[in-house]
Design a protein around this nucleic acid. Structure first.
Length: 266
DNA sequence: ATTGCTTCCTGAGCGC
DNA sequence: TGCGCTCAGGAAGCAA
């Protein structure tokens, strides 16, 4: 479900509402939702600070533990004052002030992991640069693409190359850059690379400004949808903004929307 | 080393 | 109504 802008929206919502909250109980309603990588219990600790890395939510618990949440396709975090269990509620964190955070996940791919404060998920250590920082720049992307035979679409989806992009935003980025999604990475020109960097930063910033994209069930922690779906140009569109019919193809098993007129193979 | 196919799981939407 | 199929904001784990 959520990509970088959606996760960022959730983290901001959590930061406003839960910093300083003490965990009274942490209950798992389905096996393997909460995975402990430490013997230390999270109960009694405080949500000290929150951050995001790629699509991961990182919660610092009293500088003692780190809670790492990944929502995968259908995970949701809902902050409520009363218990509202659904058939898909997988875990509930109750705070000392009687509020609670419910983790719902229809497809059950998501997880909550708990590590020592100085430890983290190995997958996080392998993540590529954050696209909204200076680390994601022309020099870096040129080096990545120089010899890459894979289609640019797959490369941009690879979290070890760039952290946080998913299927929607990669389609949108490629539309804005006029690059065909099947074009091999090494075929991109310097000008293309600069356009990719610029479009990536623009699309993500705009999406964050609109609280993310709700195609079906993304919701902020107060259960409100995002608004960026109103600004998508090709993803799940029949026509691009210029009126050309779009096409849908599969790349690496993922539906890829593009405009065959605006986005040409060289 | 790189690339891509299958898998985890549940539900919605479609054609017949 | 219901069946069977395809599809879904992700990514690990394999196989080639």
């Amino acid at each position: 479900m959520p990509e970088l802008p959606e996760v960022e929206t959730i983290v901001r919502g959590l930061r406003e509402n839960t910093v300083g909250n003490r965990i009274e109980s942490l209950t798992e309603l389905r096996n393997n939702t909460i995975i402990y990588h430490t013997n230390q219990c999270a109960e009694g600790l405080v949500f000290s600070s929150l951050s995001r890395r790629g699509k991961y939510i990182l919660i610092n618990l009293s500088d003692i533990l780190t809670m790492v949440i990944h929502l995968r396709m259908t995970g949701k975090l809902v902050y409520t004052e009363t218990e509202q269990l659904t058939p898909h509620t997988r875990a509930v964190i109750k705070f000392a002030d009687r509020t609670m955070l419910q983790f719902e996940d229809i497809r059950t791919f998501g997880s909550i992991q708990i590590f020592e404060a100085n430890d983290t998920d190995p997958a996080i250590k392998r993540l590529g640069p954050e696209p909204l920082t200076e680390d994601f720049n022309e020099k870096y992307l040129y080096k990545v693409l120089e010899k890459a035979k894979a289609p640019i679409k797959s490369i941009l989806l690879n979290q070890e190359i760039i952290a946080g992009l998913g299927n929607i935003y990669v389609c949108e980025i490629l539309y804005r850059t006029k690059i065909h999604p099947t074009l091999a990475g090494k075929e991109l020109t310097r000008a293309d690379i600069i356009r990719v960097i610029t479009a990536t930063k623009e699309v993500l910033a705009e999406a964050i400004l609109h609280n993310g994209t709700s195609i079906s069930d993304f919701r902020n922690i107060d259960d409100k949808p995002g608004e960026f779906q109103n600004f998508l140009r090709v993803y799940q569109k029949k026509e691009c903004p210029l009126g050309h019919p779009t096409e849908r193809i599969k790349i690496a098993g993922r539906s890829t929307y593009f405009c065959p007129v605006c986005q040409r193979l060289k």
